[in-house]
Amino acid sequence: MTESCIQIEQLTKKFNKKTILNEITLDIPCAKITGLLGPSGAGKTTLIKQIAGMDTSDQGHIYVLSKKMPSLDIIHRIGYMAQSDALYNELSAYDNLDFFAQLYGLKGKIKKQRIYEVIELVDLTADLRKKVSKYSGGMKRRLSLAIALVHQPEILLLDEPTVGIDPVLRQSIWSELEILSNQGTTIIVTTHVMDEAEKCHQLAMLRNGRIIAFDTPNKLLENTETKSIEEAFLYYGGVKA
């Protein structure tokens, strides 16, 4: 396997005595799209937040680009898209992008250029000056994605990025992710949609806070002698299909 950019070691996170993440150990390869697949409540979002350095763990460590998290230096190189759209509704899409771009230290021409690039990518150029409060759910998702991309991060953490986005645009977003990973961006995507999972280079199956399988989608199918990711998930989950 190629070298890994993110190492997770024995990570455990409890919340009110309930174990959300249970001794997770995972090596996430560089410049690949790694999918975190699991039902809601499996701990996908918690794991993503841990990698992003936004939450504390009870046990274990995470190293991103060989640095122990949380580290402000690394946070600079991470692009994060939250599951719920954390946007300023009173502001226009442009102002939202502009604000986050500045937090990542972009300024002047480069900032402007990046804003137009990412907004084009998510197909919102026509609505750039609209207030976010007038946006639909899908448009907000796309704007959140644009914000995550604006500072050209080396690591991209996307929590359910394609929910509510129409299939045509979803297709183009996935091909864009493919291009980014070819250019060297390490991408982690959470999803509970099985057909999206097949598009990932590596797939980690998460259930009840544990990793039940981690391999390429093809290998997972081969190993379980199943025809779909869904069946493979059931197999690893202990339910023979």
Partner: peptide
């Protein structure tokens, strides 16, 4: 957005 802010530097 606070959480989102804390995912920035």
């Amino acid at each position: 957005t606070l959480e989102r802010l804390l995912a920035t530097p």
